[in-house]
């Protein structure tokens, strides 16, 4: 049993991403969407925390949201993977439940 967590707020504006990372369990997945994609960036004040969690939790960003914001995929933390909308659907289907962190 596992959960797909979605986060749609910038981690520099709200605690949504941190709270999500503090509550997700090994084998879960976290998909950062909308302004949440900033949480997947390397070289930020939160990169170490996110990268560390990426060892036990699968981390994704919604690539169209990243592209829309002018952020190149090369700026992502190495264990954060970009997915398209079809990939989003696959993640929802793969996990037992989806929990939104708003």
């Amino acid at each position: 049993m596992s959960t797909l967590h979605t986060v749609n707020k910038s981690p520099f504006a709200t605690q949504a991403l941190l709270s999500c990372l503090n509550h997700c369990k090994d084998g879960d997945a976290v998909l950062m969407i909308e302004d949440g994609v900033y949480g997947g960036l390397a070289g930020t004040g939160l990169t170490d925390i996110v990268a560390q969690k990426g060892k036990t939790v699968a981390l994704f960003v919604l690539a169209p949201d990243l592209t829309a914001r002018g952020i190149d995929g090369s700026r992502l933390i190495s264990n954060v993977e970009g997915v398209d909308y079809a990939g989003f659907v696959d993640l929802v289907a793969k996990h037992d439940r989806t929990q939104a962190w708003l």
């Binding site: 439940r97 929990q99 708003l102």
Partner: peptide, 10 residues
């Protein structure tokens, strides 16, 4: 949270 069928967030 991991024990639920449906999670609704507010």
């Amino acid at each position: 949270m991991a024990d639920q069928d449906v999670v609704l967030s507010f």
